[in-house]
Simulated assay, not measured.
Amino acid sequence: MKLTRNILVIDDETRWLRTINMVLSRHIPEACTHTCENSRQALQLIADLDIALVLLDLNMPLLDGHQLLRDIRDHAPYVRIIVVTGLNDTEVAVECMKQGAYDFIAKTSSTEQLLLCVRRAMEVIGLERNYHRIKDGFFNRKSLRAFDPLLTTDIKMHDCFTYAASLSESCEYYFVRR
């Protein structure tokens, strides 16, 4: 599983989509931001673009944001979802969090609050994906070319080599991407 920094913004308001796209592109340049006005296309875009984070509006004409939130959780459970909506209602926020939203923020919030929320989510996504890379490398017994000169029949040593190889790949990927 690779570390992606793809963000999908789903909203039916074209002007808001353009604004948030410009803000994210300027302040979070390591992320690639995509926009979607048609909520029915969202699940396909998430799969096609390897989306890591979704900024989701709740009030949309074709497919309601609440239903789309449930659909994303069912079809792409690894994707983090931040609900960004005009509704600044505690009950709605609690309901969204119960349905699996990572965070909830009102459109009237400051740009700094939105960016902080997005950065925090991207950091968590990066940590989760690195964890999975290390875990998969450890349990899949990847090739250990760096340790070829060392001979051992001890399974514990082999586990240490596998863990070190997984960590080195993870660190290399992390520093190359930044």
Rank of each mutant, 00 (worst) to 15 (best):
Met1Pro: 07
Lys2Phe: 14
Thr4Trp: 15
Thr4Lys: 15
Arg5Tyr: 05
Val9Cys: 06
Val9Arg: 06
Val9Ile: 14
Trp16Gln: 15
Thr19Ala: 15
Ile20Gln: 10
Asn21Pro: 08
Met22Ile: 13
Leu24Asn: 07
Ser25Glu: 15
His27Lys: 14
Glu30Thr: 10
Ala31Thr: 04
Thr35Ala: 07
Thr35Val: 14
Glu37Asp: 07
Arg40Ser: 06
Gln41Leu: 07
Gln41Glu: 13
Gln44Asp: 12
Leu45Asp: 04
Ala47Lys: 15
Asp48His: 06
Asp48Tyr: 03
Leu49Pro: 05
Leu49Glu: 08
Ile51Ser: 03
Ile51Gly: 03
Ala52Leu: 01
Leu53Gln: 03
Val54Met: 03
Leu55Cys: 08
Met60Phe: 06
Met60Asn: 09
Pro61Ile: 04
Asp64His: 04
Gly65Glu: 14
Gly65Phe: 14
Gly65Val: 14
Gln67Asn: 07
Asp71Thr: 02
Ile72Val: 13
Arg73Ala: 03
Arg73Trp: 03
His75Cys: 04
Pro77Asn: 08
Val79Trp: 08
Arg80Glu: 15
Arg80His: 11
Ile82Cys: 01
Leu87Gly: 04
Val94Pro: 01
Cys96Ala: 11
Met97Trp: 12
Met97Lys: 14
Lys98Asn: 11
Gln99Glu: 14
Gly100Arg: 09
Ala101Asp: 02
Phe104Asp: 03
Ile105Pro: 00
Ala106Lys: 04
Ala106Asn: 08
Ala106Met: 04
Lys107Glu: 02
Lys107Gly: 01
Ser109Gly: 00
Ser110Tyr: 13
Glu112Leu: 07
Leu114Asp: 01
Leu114Asn: 04
Leu115Cys: 02
Leu116Tyr: 06
Leu116Val: 01
Cys117Glu: 03
Arg120Leu: 01
Arg120Gly: 00
Ala121Ser: 10
Met122Ile: 05
Val124Gly: 00
Val124Ala: 09
Leu127Asn: 14
Asn130Lys: 11
Asn130Cys: 06
Asn130Trp: 08
Ile134Asp: 07
Asp136His: 15
Asp136Trp: 09
Phe139Asp: 13
Phe139Ala: 07
Asn140Thr: 12
Arg141Cys: 01
Lys142Cys: 00
Lys142Arg: 14
Arg145Trp: 02
Pro149Glu: 10
Leu150Lys: 14
Leu151Thr: 13
Thr152Leu: 03
Asp154Ile: 00
Asp154Gly: 00
Met157Val: 11
His158Leu: 03
Tyr163Trp: 13
Tyr163Cys: 05
Leu167Ser: 01
Leu167Phe: 06
Ser168Gly: 00
Ser170Lys: 08
Ser170Met: 10
Cys171Ile: 15
Tyr173Met: 14
Phe175Ser: 05
Phe175Cys: 02
Arg177Asn: 10
Arg177Met: 11
Arg178Pro: 00
